[in-house]
Amino acid sequence: MSILEINQLNKTYSNGFVALKNIDLTINKGEIFALLGPNGAGKTTLISAVCGIVNASSGSILVGGHDNVKNYRDARRMIGLVPQELTTDAFITVWDTIKFSQRLFGADYDPEYLEQILKNLSLWDKKNNQIRTLSGGMKRRVLIAKALSHKPDILFLDEPTAGVDVDLRKDMWDQMRVLRESGVTIILTTHYIEEAEDMADRVGVINGGEIILVEDKKSLMKKMGRKQLTVELKEPLDQLPSGLTDYDVQVQDGTLTYTYDSLREEFGVDDFLCTLHDAGLKYKDVQTRQSSLEEIFVELVKR
């Protein structure tokens, strides 16, 4: 079931910059969707258009079936946004700021719920601190707490772990999973590929304002995944045996590296190893490696 539908969305800024081109995107309820793209690809503009911070030039956005322009109140109530920049007030306390957010979105003040959010985000002991006294990582969590304060159905995280250390990043990923368990749909933008690889159910790649691809993460990795088979030989090789010239093989000292497409039937691992055997080559060790999402991504963006 879809919770967000973007149809033929275009955005051209007043200075003529075309930020989004004919974006079509459907997000399923309850999934974690990662939007990948290099800097300036249009990730933030896309999120801003959905949240009502940027006016789209054309196209439509349905949030839970509500048009985000005609029916903006119902649409926006369903959304929580964690912006990329650490934009917080300085002088008010953590508690006051999340209380403010809760009521801003039309919800009634619910201290028990706010307490629970702060505890989940390990901010409870900071509730009476002014925001300016917090570290960057804590401010980021305050922004998440603000976004969650009105119980949104969709949570947008714009580069949530930028500038957050490794420990805290893992923590945040765990929290995202807990949120997803509770039924919240999560859309995150990132250029940390490992983040998408680790968390996302589906991945979308945006470049130059266009969605290049939307794919289930596993099938994307399977489809695009190049595999490499590395064979360490017992004795160094001067020249490729004739049977191996058909394969995409590189020789370096005593190591053969064979790059292949895991989906293709011909020239599979089995054939390759048989050919090695037939050529009378003995090997010490065999290793395979699958390309990461990052390599896939770089390849896609280059095209």
Binding site: G52, Y72, R76, L81, P83, E85, T87
Partner: peptide, 11 residues
């Protein structure tokens, strides 16, 4: 300061 994002995205 940029906190306007929250006002703009609110219902």
């Amino acid at each position: 300061s940029g906190t306007i994002y929250e006002i703009l995205s609110a219902p």
